[in-house]
Write a protein that binds this DNA or RNA. Sequence first.
DNA 1: TAAAATTAAATTGTATACAATTTAAATCCA
DNA 2: TGGATTTAAATTGTATACAATTTAATTTTA
Lengths: 145, 145
Amino acid sequence: MKQLKFSHQLCFPIYALSRLITSHYQPLLGELDLTYPQYLVMLLLWEHQSMNVKTLGETLMLDSGTLTPLLKRLEAKKLIKRVRSKEDERVVNIQLTPQGVALEQQAAQIPLRLADSLGVTPAEVQELKDAVTPLLYRLKPALKC
Amino acid sequence: MKQLKFSHQLCFPIYALSRLITSHYQPLLGELDLTYPQYLVMLLLWEHQSMNVKTLGETLMLDSGTLTPLLKRLEAKKLIKRVRSKEDERVVNIQLTPQGVALEQQAAQIPLRLADSLGVTPAEVQELKDAVTPLLYRLKPALKC
DNA sequence: TAAAATTAAATTGTATACAATTTAAATCCA
DNA sequence: TGGATTTAAATTGTATACAATTTAATTTTA
């Protein structure tokens, strides 16, 4: 059945490439004792200082079922604090601790080291981003979240 | 720190798009009681009849820690059989049951229905595959597996 | 305004992923 | 040939993902 041939599948290369890139991050992030999703959260906090769980979830396209335990692990490592909002008790704000702020210095070289590990040129990176990003944000509204 | 800006990250769009596409597969695969990685295994078996765990792992870039429990679940659903090779007792061959063979008919419309769900044109699909696939197979040898 | 509906997190349960180790079988080679 | 090495799966343990439900707080609205 031609349409079910494995090599015809679009999705597999994206699924496999995602895991492959993550595996290249792993030794770099391991030096900081972070996983890749934890690193994404830290990137957002370094940029925005404080975000709540809902906003983190919208940006990363992850739900509270994934984020709550992940954030508890970052809290256990003393990189963040989880603070319930005074104005709206349903909301939990995530803030960096001094250790969380300080970790940014150690992370500074990761993007360059990752590109080196992958052996990709800036042009290739841009081409790939240009191919993937529009589809991602066109599809995103279709999600329930 | 400019290089750590979230919007500059290459990897996130690929990571998020992979999960987003999988979420579009989910309702279609749910009709067959399959997950996306289980569907990938079934695609390979429909094409090749029999594959061992190692070959499945090389093709899907998954290790036995992922595949062994996944294959046990497919076996519990009576879609496959796990048969230890007579020639080499270390090898486990995966074979389709009659139910596993029959499921291909029910899966026939999934690729078209997925493309419809994503709202992508064949040209867009091809462009994306062309951007992703070369990098995937260039990076693959760097993996230990 | 008080019950109904909505919202934000947390919780529960299932299924990947993957590192690291273990087990058992096959192969190497001194 | 027989111990050392290698190989294929399985196992163990940790960390995502995500559907579905629950809990608690806020907002809507009759």
